[in-house]
């Protein structure tokens, strides 16, 4: 009995894949069949670039969610850090220095969230909801609610590089036939890759799961739970500021409202990816595919010429549909494990 239970699950099984892969494949297939111009090199490149921002956010969100928390401040922190970086640039600061300032602000806000949650025992939902407001207000105040531009400066070449493409393959003369890989996508892949590596190969992953499953048990196992929780919120804040950098480079300007609602999309992506809001369960890959799923849907709607204000309806439907898929997959798995 014990032997079979252990061995059977070592083989390949549907249950080993993050559930959002199925949702992603499904919407990708549907979009390719029904939406003209969706499955073209140019559009897929655009899709990747658009999705990068949400992928980064949802990775940070997932870390916090797996540990049993939530970070609703991500959108606000994105706006705030973006505005701060843009102001630094418009003041003529060196690009790299501006980026560092932005990332530091994000990390600082994350630390603040972590401090409220671990030391002050404020529920994560409330603590991060509060700091969302604070961050958004800072963004509005600093920018006077206006879009910030900056002059061409001595360091424009770095910005151009960051906004440029690494690979460019032309399948045909028209724009939709050009496949390109922007540097930002590469950056996203590197950052996400690093975090997943740390998550899988260091104690970060085990401790995050343990804290989310049962903080008391984790503490009794000798894990410094407060320290780790603090770290997770800090990573989440830095992810938000990194996403801000992406927005800033893509649009070559910064609006103080850029982050509006992005925290909810990040939650949707994470939940689609199988990250349970009660903690202790989830997958970073899952969140990546959750984010991609959302962007396939958005992109298709745009190509179909459907008004963006209906996007949230479809995203809501995708979330519920994805959750139903998750539940079906889980039931399938339970049924299988009962048989063995």
């Amino acid at each position: 009995m014990s032997a079979s239970a252990g061995r059977k699950n070592r083989g390949f099984g549907l249950s080993l894949l993050p559930n959002s892969i199925f949702a992603f494949l499904l919407v990708f297939l549907l979009a390719s069949l029904w939406v003209p111009r969706f499955f073209s090199p140019g559009n897929l490149s655009t899709l990747l670039l658009q999705a990068s921002i949400l992928i980064i956010l949802s990775i940070g969100m997932s870390l916090v969610i797996i540990a049993g928390g939530i970070d609703l401040s991500m959108g606000g922190v994105l706006s705030m850090c973006g505005v701060i970086m843009a102001l630094c640039l418009s003041q003529g600061m060196h690009v790299l220095a501006a980026i560092l300032v932005g990332l530091a602000c994000g990390g600082l806000f994350g630390l603040l969230n972590g401090f409220f949650v671990t030391r002050m025992k404020v529920p994560a939902f409330i603590a991060t909801f509060g700091s969302m407001g604070i961050a958004q207000s800072i963004a509005n105040t600093l920018s006077n609610k206006r879009t910030i531009y900056w002059e061409e400066g001595s360091h424009s070449s770095i910005l151009d590089f960051l906004g440029g493409n690494i690979i460019r393959i032309e399948f045909g003369p028209e724009a939709s036939m050009i496949f390109y890989v922007p540097f930002l996508v590469v950056l996203t892949v590197i950052v996400v890759g690093c975090i997943i590596f740390l998550f899988k190969r260091t104690v970060l992953g085990s401790y995050t799961f343990a804290i989310g499953e049962n903080e008391e048990t984790a503490r009794l196992c000798g894990i410094a739970t407060q320290k780790w929780t603090l770290l997770l919120y800090m990573i989440s804040g830095m992810m938000a500021s990194l996403a801000a950098l992406l927005v800033l480079i893509r649009t070559n300007s910064m609006q103080p409202t850029s982050g509006d609602g992005l925290e909810f999309q990040a939650v949707v992506a994470a939940v689609l990816g199988g990250n349970a809001l009660e903690g202790g369960k989830g997958s970073l890959y899952g969140a990546v595919f959750g984010a991609l799923t959302l962007y396939v849907v958005r992109n298709s709607l745009t190509l179909k010429g459907i008004d963006t204000s209906t996007t949230m309806i479809v995203i809501g439907a995708v979330l519920v549909g994805g959750m139903i898929l998750n539940e079906l997959a889980a039931r399938h798995e339970r049924a299988r494990s009962r048989k063995s």
Partner: peptide, 27 residues
């Protein structure tokens, strides 16, 4: 039980006193 369902058997047994190889886990 005081175990973490989403972790492997080995990770559960060594939770809190893992074996390291440099900064990485020695799985």
């Amino acid at each position: 039980l005081t175990l973490v369902p989403e972790l492997s058997v080995a990770d559960n047994i060594f939770l809190g006193h893992e074996i390291h190889k440099g900064p990485l886990l020695n799985r």
